[in-house]
Design a protein around this nucleic acid. Structure first.
Length: 761
DNA sequence: CGTAGGCATGGAG
DNA sequence: ACTCCATGCCTAC
């Protein structure tokens, strides 16, 4: 069960809870509920927190809810969430566990839903329960907005919310394979190259190992390694090297749980010498020891510098620890960041590399973060700052990067929009269960994520549906009742054989399309207006930008420049018209600040317009600046960030969204957004780099003095805020663009135009 | 003064 | 509230 559970249940059982995605729902009676998935789609939880420390009424309701709906388990969450989760997930019956009445106080209660469809590796646990899948449909009044990355995030009032368990499978990464045995081939004849987190091997307390330390060696690598060493290799754990690990001090901090699980037990702080082979069979001797630390221990391997240098790994790269089986011989290996671009565990913090020219969003080659005694770029950059600020900056950077990795998998979409994408089989009627005045829909079959389409009326008054081909991006008319899968192409247009090929021209003229977009947009706006309560009466940065976009220039020239789009970027779909894909062949990389290509001109022009409007607003806010200077500055710079982000973001919108009559920057208009469930963690870098312009460059070229609010160096690193604002204020979430907005502008600028950025301050 | 060793600190989870 | 751990920092050499 160990190996079976690791891919799923154990993900939840372990401290992976931190990487779970959550959404909060405020109910009338249930104070606060959180929906969670473990990132593999393996387990999903309905968590209801009891916010009143001295009140456990929530539990009784939960219990009732769980029993009524057939949830298999109900339990409580401790404050750390983990104990409760572990206990609850370990329970196999349908009862409560533990001392709930006592533990619930000041804590939480939760129930888990089970699904008819067994999750990966969880068969034993799930199937015997034989529970129907549970789908929660919450009344509009229950929902509020808090982003739930991974799963549709951001909740908009006024919508029914269906939470359907197995759905995650459609959009989440594939769960890890439960095959800890080395040399195991997953498919006949070929070893898998999929890099997955493997369950930890046997060892003391291995169940406590954080998944980020789980070895992520591919079957192929494993096979090769085993072959090279002519032994069976058991991957134990791995660690991304921190700057200090790779530093010349030569101390590699070992994760405590890993050290205790797989290294010899040591009683003395001085520890013991330990011999570890590298993958070439060369033997190294390190001192394995610990430092007392807060009644605990901190394990380090000392003297690793020669080995680190020999392997030519650096901060950000991963060192792996394995064991030769049988026996206790340890093997140290490595995996460099560049080998690993597409397979980085989203939870694994990668070290920053501001200068890397980016094929990877989280880190490229980390040449300047190094170990050989030279000042790293990081250090150099911070040289003149006081220590506290250095530290702060460093931590902010780490935090930001961590978020990038995690957010890479985020799906920025509102719950309301998610509703539109849910495609339960039309023949299946949900069972409505009323529990404490809350209506819950229950479906036997998992729903399917559908393609976003536009419903419109023809001149004859007949309703029709417009859908965009994922291959050629042409819009096709479809019968109104049609439910499309998430991916749909012209060839699947079985309703119109004349237009069932991408080669057939679009039969919808642009004005019709624009009109349809407009209708959708207005409809959505109306809904938004009904639901949204203005926070402060001030337009947000996003709104200001959208307004600016409306009042600013049109995008015709950009649209023109998009003709002849390429698909050179491997992550982008054919027909993608993002700034990367529309690059001229020679334009890979940089455009000079003086470049006058359409792309650059548009970026510059739009940015200039936006900055002018920004300036105008600043003067209007002058009085407020005097009154509450600091606070306003924070707001302003956030808005600047928004503006810059959106100016760049705009460049990445699909061509279809750059219609002449539609406002291409209006993120409120989700109707015309093609939901893209792919994540493009690398896209923000590409975007800016492809344009060859940093924010600072843009500002310069916009020829606008940086105002009081424009403090480029201090662009906020609080991406979640920005992102949640994007989600909640605009009511729209965009997968790719969410990343663009997530602070990489700053990184980018540091890398390409750091000095200018500083000057802007 | 430079460096290494060892512990302390504080952010993050 | 608590642990973990990256790294700061003090002290001895």
């Amino acid at each position: 069960m160990d190996s079976g559970g690791i891919g799923c249940i154990n993900c939840v059982k372990s401290s992976e809870i931190h990487s779970m995605r959550s959404m909060q729902i405020h109910g009338d009676d249930i104070p606060n509920a959180t929906f969670m998935t473990n990132g593999t789609g393996a387990a999903q939880l309905m968590v209801v927190e009891n916010r009143k420390d001295d009140d456990n009424y929530g539990f009784e309701r939960l219990l009732h809810l769980a029993r009524t709906t057939g949830a298999s388990k109900i339990g409580q969450l401790s404050h750390s969430h983990q104990d409760g989760l572990n206990a609850a997930l370990s329970a196999t019956d349908n009862t409560c566990f533990g001392n709930l009445s006592q533990k619930l106080t000041g804590s939480s209660a939760f129930m888990r839903t089970d699904y008819r469809r067994p999750m990966h590796g969880a068969k034993e646990l799930y199937e015997p329960l034989n529970q129907p899948s549970l789908n929660f449909s919450l009344r509009p009044s229950l929902v509020t907005s808090k982003p739930m990355p991974h799963f549709p995030s951001g909740i908009v009032e006024g919508s029914q919310l269906n939470i359907r368990g197995p759905r995650a499978r459609d959009i989440l990464p594939k769960p890890p394979k439960p095959s800890p045995v080395l040399g195991t081939e997953t498919k006949k004849g070929t070893a898998s190259q999929t890099r997955v987190a493997r369950p930890p091997a046997e060892g003391r307390g291995r169940n406590q190992l954080l998944p980020r330390y789980w070895p992520k060696i591919t079957d192929q690598e494993l096979k090769q390694l085993s072959g090279d060493l002519k032994s069976t290799i058991v991957p134990l754990f791995e660690k991304v090297l921190s700057a200090s690990d790779a530093g010349r001090i030569g101390r590699l901090v070992l994760p405590k749980a890993c050290a205790e699980a797989y290294f010899p037990h040591i009683n003395q702080s001085e520890g013991i010498p330990i011999r570890i082979q590298d993958i070439k069979g060369k033997e190294w001797t390190f001192q394995f020891r610990f430092w007392p630390n807060n009644n605990s221990r901190m394990y380090v391997l000392e003297g690793v510098t020669p080995c680190i240098q020999n392997m030519q790994v650096q901060a950000g790269d991963t060192v792996t620890f394995s064991r030769i089986d049988p026996g206790d011989q340890l093997v140290i290996g490595c995996r460099k960041v560049t080998d690993n671009v597409d397979t980085q565990d989203p939870q694994t913090p990668a070290l920053p590399n501001d200068d890397s020219p980016g094929e990877s969003s989280f880190s490229g080659p980390t040449d300047n973060l190094l170990s050989n005694g030279a000042k790293t770029s990081d250090e150099s950059m911070q040289q003149n700052k006081p220590a506290s600020e250095k530290k702060k900056t460093r931590n902010m950077k780490n935090k930001r990067l961590l978020m990038h990795n995690e957010d890479a998998m985020e799906l920025r979409i509102t719950w309301e929009e998610a509703q539109d994408l849910l495609r339960p089989s039309p023949t299946v009627q949900p069972t409505i269960v009323m529990i404490e005045d809350h209506a819950f829909e229950e479906y036997d079959e998992p729903p399917v994520f559908g393609k976003r389409t536009i419903f419109t009326s023809q001149h004859s008054g007949e309703q029709e549906q417009l859908a965009q081909c994922d291959s050629c991006s042409k819009w096709r008319r479809l019968p109104v009742h049609v439910l499309l899968p998430a991916k749909w192409t012209c060839s699947e247009n079985i309703w119109d054989s004349n237009r069932s090929s991408c080669s057939v021209p679009e039969d919808i003229n642009s004005s019709d399309l624009s009109a349809a977009f407009r209708v959708c947009k207005e409809s959505k706006r109306r809904r938004g207006a009904d639901n949204k309560t203005s926070k402060d009466g001030e337009p947000s940065g996003l709104d200001a930008l959208a307004t600016a976009a409306v009042l600013g220039d049109n995008m015709d020239d950009l649209a023109e420049s998009l003709v002849g789009a390429t698909t050179k970027h491997p992550r982008h779909r054919p027909g993608c018209t993002c700034i990367v894909c529309i690059q001229p062949p020679s334009g890979k990389g940089k455009h000079e600040p003086t470049c006058e290509c359409n792309v650059c001109l548009t970026v510059k022009r739009r940015f200039k317009t936006l900055m002018l409007r920004k300036k105008q607003r600043q003067s209007e806010l002058a009085a407020e600046l005097v009154l509450g200077k600091d606070e306003t500055q924070v707001d302003l710079k956030s808005e600047d960030d928004d503006i810059a982000g959106r100016a760049l973001l705009q460049m990445n919108l699909p061509e279809s969204e750059k219609g002449k009559d539609t406002n291409p920057m209006d993120l409120d208009d989700g109707s015309k957004e093609q939901l893209d469930l792919n994540c493009h963690p690398d896209r923000e870098n590409e975007l800016v780099e492809a344009a060859g312009m940093s924010l600072a460059t843009l500002i310069k070229n916009a020829d606008i003095p940086s105002g009081a609010g424009l403090q480029k160096k201090e662009l906020p690193s609080s991406e979640p805020d920005l992102l949640s604002r994007t989600a909640s204020e605009s009511g729209e979430c965009i997968v790719d663009e969410g990343n663009i907005l997530s602070g990489d502008v700053e990184q980018k600028n540091k890398g390409e135009d750091g000095e200018s950025g500083t000057d802007l301050n």
